[in-house]
Design a protein around this nucleic acid. Structure first.
Length: 585
RNA sequence: GUUCCUGUAGUUCAAUGGAUAGAACAUCGGUCUCCGGAACCGAAAAUCUGGGUUCGAAUCCCGGCAGGAACGCCA
């Protein structure tokens, strides 16, 4: 079997497109629109005849007949059964023999490296602000970004993981003002207490700026002083950042998230003046109410809702550093594509940023990287509002992670009291973290979702524990086979796939490549989650109804093949979601 | 006010304009001397509303209703 059969959906698209070109009634505008079919009708279906017939005012049934006629003559399609049905669908059914060949050929060898090779993609994710601990609001960018990044890399892209930390913003003005007013010596605070103290001072500062206009002015001045290089402010700033980043790193370690670069906003501080100057001299930016702004006159909203790139007090902001960052990623990383993973509330900001960059790079006549904003919704509490603690504070990420592991440990000790404490602890770690990640990734990212411990850590349904259990079971089977030498031997003969469960499991395995393709198109990992759950569920049905050991060697061989491929896809898939797997749980 | 997002079984979520809207949880009822019962099988149960486009609409367009969000010196 040729390697281009790996993604059956694409392959069938190509075949049907090519066939159609040999028929007079079709032309190059024809798109076969192959999709996975409802099992009632087949494995795949050609949907495109209907649309094409409509556009060209032809009879869909007649066109379908013609295409079907050619398809039936095609050698490439000889092992498929084809039929015309409904208003003009062509249903495609794979023979069990073909499925078996496909599974044997690609077992543990799904190589998608060619799909994105040669492409350099910067993924900008996590990106918390310093001076505060990470809270639930920082969870989704980290989890979704990590998963997307892994998938892009798996498909062969040269991925650059960049944590664009917010370490140069207004919070430092407020915090510095508060520190100086309170006369706190932050350099002598015990480092484990420091973050709490910064947070307390920050809150105090925010209150002061709200109550007292002078304090607000003072905070702004402190920020400007910092941005101009005032030594004292720089020293305070540095201490706060170091402390914050140390805390971030602990969370990243637990969550198995790593970056190639941590180039925060401050990294771009000496690259901002040239942004102002260029945008001004190119006539893109203009002064308005003392600030430097960019209007997009042609745009329905951004015509009078400007993109503010320098505040009237001369300080830079988010927009300024983001502009400098795009240029840097173009110049230094040669990025073909930049993906920003942030909250949906920043949609306007990124639209304005992208429009501005488009004009800027256009005027400079340099290549524009493809810019994508991958945004997500809010995590809600059981009351349907943004999740908060009882006292109205945002929940600290560290506490959330710890609680998840404690809850997982309680379940593991109850279900598996025989395991050693170390093993239980390790399992609880993987299950607890995996549950948080899966609960997030399994939902369409553009929707808000309700956070629920019970649902997340349940061992039933579309959850991390259910998937991890399926993986552990297959490992257990292999362990058992290693110990029973008489049946574990290699055998050349393999029985043909025959039972309904075998066929439908094989049928599910075939979809893996096109699911990855689908995730790539939309950058929505929930497609992968849905698929993995369906696969695990299909496997469980198969495993429940079909004995593997004790049915003879040729049966053992074919069923083991299915187990091996299932394990490979589940482990690969979970890894692409950023979820660790276990051999025992 | 302008703009964006979201309304799908009791609940939490799926569904690239395609055929009879698919799962999970909960509910009810089954399987089993079972390679890990943390399993498997089955039943009942849903597209906010009114128009429109289309051979075909949960999906696209227009109008309501409901919830959330963004709209110049926060990120």
């Amino acid at each position: 079997m040729e390697s281009d059969w790996l993604d059956l959906k694409s392959k069938l698209n190509t075949i049907f497109y090519t066939l159609a070109q040999t028929i007079d009634e079709f032309d190059i505008s024809f798109k076969p629109e192959i999709r996975v079919a409802d099992p009632r009708f087949g494995d795949f279906q050609v949907n495109g005849v209907l649309g094409f017939a409509k556009k060209n005012k032809k009879n869909p049934h007649e066109l379908g007949e013609k295409l079907l006629g050619e398809a039936k003559k095609s050698e490439a399609l000889s092992s498929f059964s084809l039929e015309l049905s409904g208003p003009g669908f062509i249903n495609i059914r794979l023979a069990p023999k073909f499925l078996q060949q496909w599974v044997s050929h690609f077992c543990e060898r799904c190589d998608f490296n060619q799909w994105l090779s040669g492409k350099t993609i910067v993924v900008d994710y996590s990106s918390p602000n310093t001076a505060k601990q990470m809270h639930v609001g920082h969870l989704r960018s980290m989890i979704i970004g990590e998963s997307i990044q892994r998938i892009l890399r798996f498909c062969g892209a040269n991925v650059i993981r960049d944590n664009h930390i917010g370490d140069w913003g207004t919070q430092f003005g407020i915090l510095t003002m508060a520190i100086k007013r309170a006369k706190v010596n932050i350099f002598t605070i015990n480092s484990s207490m420091a973050l709490d103290e910064f947070e307390r001072l920050y809150k105090e500062g925010v209150n002061l700026t709200k109550q007292d206009e002078n304090c607000l002015q003072e905070a702004r001045k402190e920020l400007v002083a910092l941005q101009k290089g005032d030594p004292e402010n720089l020293k305070i700033w540095e201490t706060i950042n170091t402390t914050s980043y140390r805390a971030f790193k602990e969370i990243y370690k637990q969550m198995d998230v790593t970056f190639d670069y941590v180039l925060g906003e401050s990294f771009y501080r000496d690259k901002l003046d040239s942004v102002y100057n260029e945008l001004k001299s190119l006539g893109i930016a203009e002064e308005d109410q003392g600030a430097l702004v960019v209007f997009h006159r042609e745009h329905e909203r951004f015509g009078d809702q400007p993109f503010l790139i320098r505040k009237s007090d001369g300080a830079s902001n988010y927009a300024t550093t983001d502009l400098a960052t795009v240029l840097y990623r173009h110049d230094s990383f040669h990025a073909n594509e930049i993906i920003y993973v942030t909250d949906g509330r920043q949609q306007d900001h990124f639209q304005q940023l992208f429009l501005t960059v488009e004009r800027w790079f256009g005027a400079k006549n340099i290549d524009l990287p493809e810019l994508k904003h991958v945004w997500f919704g809010t995590i809600l509490g059981e009351d349907g509002r943004a999740i908060k603690t009882r006292s109205g504070e945002s929940i600290k990420l560290k506490q959330l992670i710890d609680e998840s592991m404690v809850r997982a440990l309680a379940i593991v000790t109850e279900k598996n009291p025989d395991l050693s404490q170390n093993e239980q602890q390790e399992i609880a770690c993987v299950v607890g973290i995996g549950a948080i990640k899966y609960a997030d990734l399994s939902q369409n990212r553009t929707n808000d979702y309700v956070f629920s411990w019970n649902k997340m850590l349940s061992f039933e349904g579309s959850t991390a524990p259910y998937l991890l259990y399926a993986v552990a079971r297959i490992h257990a089977l292999f362990r058992k086979l290693e110990n029973t030498t008489n049946e574990g031997n290699q055998s050349r003969s393999m029985a043909a796939l025959s039972t309904a469960e075998e066929v439908s499991l094989a049928r599910k395995l075939v979809d893996f490549p096109s699911i990855i393709m689908q995730v790539l198109d939309d950058l929505r990992p929930h497609y992968l989650c849905t698929y993995l759950f369906e696969l695990a569920s299909e496997f469980s049905s198969f495993y429940n109804a079909n004995r593997i050991i004790g049915e003879g060697r040729d049966v053992l061989e074919k069923r083991l093949l299915l187990c091996r491929f299932t394990l490979y896809v589940l482990e690969t898939g979970l890894h692409l979601l950023g979820i660790e797997t276990l051999e025992k749980m």
